[in-house]
Design a protein around this nucleic acid. Structure first.
Lengths: 218, 218
DNA sequence: CGGGGGCTTGACGCACCTCAAGACAAGTGG
DNA sequence: CCACTTGTCTTGAGGTGCGTCAAGCCCCCG
């Protein structure tokens, strides 16, 4: 559905135009907004910063995470084309948000309530549902089940095709799933070996046996 | 602050009257509502059931959870006096909700929008914040850190006193923290041995060293 | 006093982590 | 165009934190 450039292509002009993302935007054009481009790894907001904007990914991908004092990281969510993030219901951010690949983002001032506020409940609900889904994964599933659930989630959000774009690194995946990069890599290898998936490039997965993956993630 | 009967006291007449819970209720008395009593372990709603009510705990405690097909359980949240639950933004429930101890619950019809809907965003936001907090715990913390975070969370929600009421079983705690009952029990024992907490009864904890617990949970 | 569910404790096993080496891919400069 | 660099990923070997299995204890209750 979205034929975005792979994340490791970072030269300028390699990114699709904003118009290429045929995503129904939730906010009317009447709301004050602006589009900005973020280089791979660059910060969108940081924990402790003043909040007040909400953001929509035009193309690219974003990770939102928290840190423990010793550096352990938990990515609470990834956001891809069309998805909205940044609303935490407080005047201050409790998370960090970074562009994973080169990413274009629309910002909306939350204070211009009329256009935006009616979308806050559905947006927040989607976040809650995903977070609760993810609690089950982190609390009760094995490494293989976590990776299976992850692949299916990403694939569905990209339109349900077999070809899955993985803009994030193994480290990101590990920090999302509560695993180390080695474990993620080993699970990928095992799935490849069993013919469940293929890995044409490091940042692309191909789902060969949907049913098996679905049965694994239960 | 809330001097509720301990959960293992389950004889009738042992429960405080509804009026004993001096909790500011979020909804005006004009909204249609009714109060019902639930025996320990009884279902409030089940996954797949039609949704449409939201609930407020008057006294007692509630667990909300999901199951995997093989029976593994993840409790996504506990709700105690004054707290609101049951809104999932769908016409059908995706979770199970059960009374842990004898519990009194007020129901509000969500369809009578005028009184209730204005509270949905703050309620949903509180749930989202807690879920995200919990993601960090489940994804990246050790058994001892999880238990420390749990005790502090419960203690703070009960008014910040040292005496903490634990209406839920070790099994419930384990299924909330992504641990087995044995591990929960071992961590409790170790904390007791180190003088961080005391366990006057099975369902009561006393926090002796707040600072230590806080340092543990980071 | 006897029964039973929940809890604790111990011994052992395993899934995942840690540590380490090497492979691979992409960019860089000569 | 090819050595060299750098970062990411894969694979292996060994360690460990928590799970599993099992026995016994405690508290409550009949």
């Amino acid at each position: 559905m979205f034929a975005f450039a792979h994340s490791h292509i970072s030269g300028q002009g390699q990114y699709p135009h904003a118009n290429d993302a045929h995503v129904p935007l939730p906010f009317g054009a009447t709301s004050p907004q602006q589009t900005s481009f973020h280089a791979p790894g660059s910060e969108i907001y940081a924990q402790g910063e003043a909040a007040g904007n909400i953001y929509q990914v035009e193309f690219g991908a974003v990770r939102v995470y928290r840190l423990l004092s010793d550096g352990r990281r938990q990515i609470s969510a990834f956001y891809m084309s069309g998805e909205v993030f940044g609303f935490e219901g407080d005047t201050v951010h409790h998370f960090f948000a970074e562009a994973i690949t080169g990413t274009s983002i629309r910002s909306f001032r939350q204070s211009q309530l009329n256009d935006v506020s009616q979308f806050l409940l559905p947006i927040t609900l989607r976040g809650l549902t995903r977070a609760q889904e993810h609690l089950l994964v982190l609390g009760r599933q094995t490494a293989a089940e976590r990776v299976a659930a992850f692949l299916l989630d990403i694939a569905r959000r990209q339109g349900g095709l077999e070809q899955v774009d993985l803009p994030m690194s193994r480290m990101d995946i590990g920090d999302y799933l509560g695993l180390t990069i080695e474990t993620v890599s080993r699970v990928f290898s095992k799935m490849k070996e069993k013919g469940i998936i293929a890995l044409p490039t490091l940042r692309t997965a191909e789902i060969l046996k949907w049913k098996t993956l679905e049965a694994m993630s239960d």
